[in-house]
Write a protein that binds this DNA or RNA. Structure first.
Lengths: 200, 200
DNA sequence: ATCAATTGTGAATTGAGATTCACATGCTAG
DNA sequence: CTAGCATGTGAATCTCAATTCACAATTGAT
């Protein structure tokens, strides 16, 4: 028998392992048998700690929310200059890309197709919290005068997201041939130029 | 009994209906029973025309490839000015967004997780063909002098993709509250500015 | 018109994965 | 120390969707 753990601790382990499976191999690869094995339990054991697989997925979603907002907050504290903060955040995402291709794909797919409205609301809060934090950084940049003020912070936040999303897909699709770092080295300066420029 | 059709015609119908299901409700919603019903057959009837569901999905992928490259080519012919061509293409994607949220999510998820390498290669060709066409437009813009020449066309094509991807997720996640058209009205002029600007 | 190939049907079969259940074991409060 | 609860186990079971199969209807070539 695997060592016993209190349900709180077990839930944490299960959620983390589920996230790991999801991140590496996608939602389709998250199954109870495999999850149980990673956790060091037998499939039925999982059900001592979660009522259903759906409940596990919800927990994973919450974990993703925590981590993602955590990244944004960390970036906001990593530098003084807002533009530098964004750069730091972007760089962090690029670094995560290799090991965790599943997360964005999962979040987006769930956002689009989940039939349970609780789940959809959950995903929505993830994306909106994240965008709000990015927008907040941009707003501070506008206040400090380093970012043009004639554009909504939210609109810029969405464009920032647009800097990241293509990297995710291209990195995977080309099995590593696509160089995300290199792309960012081109696109980031253009993005920054855009944030400042008010005309030629 | 449903009217008989030759296998070629039936395959076309099945593929189109599968794409419609996929586009509206996601890959998870594509099942043989539902597909058969849409086509006007009984589930087993599907197997007269496809060996397996996987084969159907492959056919859908090819159909997506055709349509997507078709859009890009159409856009390239819709205007003389390359920048105007890009705008036309972007606008087309925005218009498609509402009814077909499933396609991008599917393509990206397959790109990332499909275990069959044939499938992955297929997806890769979709994305690369599309990007190549966009890059081609940009290259022509550079030749004509309307787009700055100090940046790789491909890098700009990737950024163009970044203009589109966030719209897909946000539109769906907010259940229509997010106004993609409005976002594009902000982001597109900035993008164009960026294509031209060489410094303040 | 006829026969062979093609296409369609409805009823099984299969398989994979989630979930349940009866029982075993370990922990903890009293 | 021991009763009772929480946690773990292994063997079913349940569910759902894909797939197969034996048989029927239709079509097209001769």
């Amino acid at each position: 028998m695997a060592g016993k753990r209190k349900t709180g601790a077990r839930q944490k382990i299960i959620t983390e392992q589920a996230l790991a499976m999801l991140a590496k191999h996608g939602l389709a690869a998250v199954n109870i048998a495999g999850l149980a094995q990673r956790v060091g339990l037998v499939p039925s054991g999982i059900y001592r700690h979660f009522k259903s697989k759906a409940e596990i997925v919800d927990a994973v979603l919450n974990l993703i929310l925590e981590r993602l907002t955590g990244f944004a907050d960390a970036a906001a504290e990593a530098a003084l200059d807002p533009i530098e903060q964004l750069r730091s955040l972007l760089q962090h995402h690029v670094a995560m890309l290799n090991d965790n291709p599943g997360i964005p794909s999962f979040v987006f797919a769930e956002a689009i197709f989940s039939t349970q409205s609780r789940r959809r609301a959950n995903v929505r809060s993830i994306v909106e919290s994240y965008l709000a934090r990015v927008a907040r950084i941009i707003e501070r940049g506008q206040e400090l005068g380093s970012i043009r003020s004639d554009v909504e912070p939210t609109a810029i936040a969405v464009m920032f997201l647009g800097l990241i999303q293509p990297l995710i897909i291209l990195r995977q699709i080309t099995e590593g041939e696509f160089d995300a770092k290199r792309q960012v080295e081109t696109s980031w300066p253009l993005f920054v130029e855009m944030l400042k420029v008010r005309g030629p």
